[in-house]
């Protein structure tokens, strides 16, 4: 059956609410409206306004309230309406959500899922297209997860809600309306992907593309196009930025000896910089070329009429692959 990412996320929330009475959804417009992206559609009707709560418009208050709810043993799932609208909650994220387990010597964990629609490519005006993953990934104590497929958006959200640690769950809004043959009802508990494991989406022998979230389809398209150039590209979907799956990533890079990291966020001090450093530290003697990055430029997210220049494209990825020192 054809399922969109929005429907899969909705199913994950619904199944979590149904199976665990401690799960509570809260955020702006998540109740009656079903969220601006309709991810929470129908949940308030099915589970009641208290299980899917329309809150005042205040992100720090939403997350701070969720912290208190988690202290009392509930599992709050918070929706931040857009990437850039989550910033007012940043102090709660950094000073409390990420640190509570640590500062209480393990006595008080906060099983909170913070859902954040992120990234561009949807024609959004200013403040609606940020890629904010590096802020969260740089904060110890958080898990940072981002699905790129319909099936993963269901499975990883189930895992995030079930996790005893706080999870920042970054939903690539560009892929919200992507569809796949997937039926949540047929997913058994054993099939739910664990947090912290990357997945090789396409095996290859020439070079390895390392990517996540909204850039995965672009990388798969680039790998397809690269065949005409005689390159057989592997594509790794990181799925979880924290914890980082060094094992899968390094195995995939060692197998080809060349790697390109691809993400939408600005490159400077971004997640790609960390990945390039880790791969270089661990796979240096297997590398035939420096690890390259294809990222958004180091600019504030551009206005929609210009975003096509900013987003990693198939051409930019193939250009990077071409620079991987093939003539040796």
């Amino acid at each position: 059956m054809s399922t969109t990412m929005v429907a899969a996320l909705n199913a994950a929330l619904r199944d979590s609410l149904r199976e665990d009475a401690s799960v509570h959804v809260l955020g702006e417009d998540v109740g009656t409206l079903g969220g601006v992206f309709r991810v929470t559609d129908g949940l308030a009707a099915e589970f009641g306004a208290q299980r899917c709560l329309d809150t005042p418009l205040a992100e720090a208050g939403i997350l701070g309230t969720a912290v208190g709810m988690a202290m009392y043993g509930l599992r709050p799932v918070v929706e931040m309406q857009f990437d850039a609208f989550a910033y007012p909650a940043f102090e709660q994220v950094v000073s409390h959500v990420a640190k509570m387990r640590n500062r209480t010597g393990g006595r008080m964990g906060l099983p909170i899922t913070i859902r954040v629609p992120y990234g561009g490519g949807v024609g959004g005006v200013e403040h609606h297209s940020d890629s904010s993953e590096a802020y969260y990934a740089h904060t110890p104590g958080l898990h940072v997860v981002t699905p790129a497929t319909v099936a993963d958006s269901y499975g990883l959200l189930r895992s995030a809600i079930a996790s005893d640690d706080p999870v920042v769950f970054l939903e690539p809004k560009r892929l919200y309306w992507s569809a796949a043959d997937f039926s949540p009802a047929e997913v058994s508990t054993a099939q739910v992907p664990p947090i912290g494991r990357a997945m090789v989406r396409r095996p290859g022998t020439s070079a390895t593309l390392l990517t996540y979230g909204p850039s995965l389809p672009v990388c798969l398209e680039a790998a397809q196009a690269a065949r005409a150039e005689g390159w057989d590209l592997a594509v790794v979907d990181l799925r979880s930025l924290v914890p980082f799956d060094d094992e899968t990533v390094c195995a995939a890079v060692r197998a080809t000896g060349r790697a390109v990291v691809v993400h939408e966020a600005a490159g400077f001090a971004g997640v790609g910089a960390e990945i390039a450093a880790r791969v270089t530290e661990r796979c240096f003697h297997h590398l035939a070329a420096p690890v390259l990055r294809v990222t958004g430029y180091d600019i504030p997210y551009p206005p929609p009429m210009l975003e096509k220049h900013h987003l990693p494209s198939v051409d930019r990825i193939l250009d990077a692959v071409a620079r991987l020192q093939w003539e040796q």
């Binding site: 309230t65 709810m69 009392y72």
Partner: peptide, 8 residues
Amino acid sequence: PHAVGLAH
């Protein structure tokens, strides 16, 4: 806000 969330 934690106090509010816990009481709620």
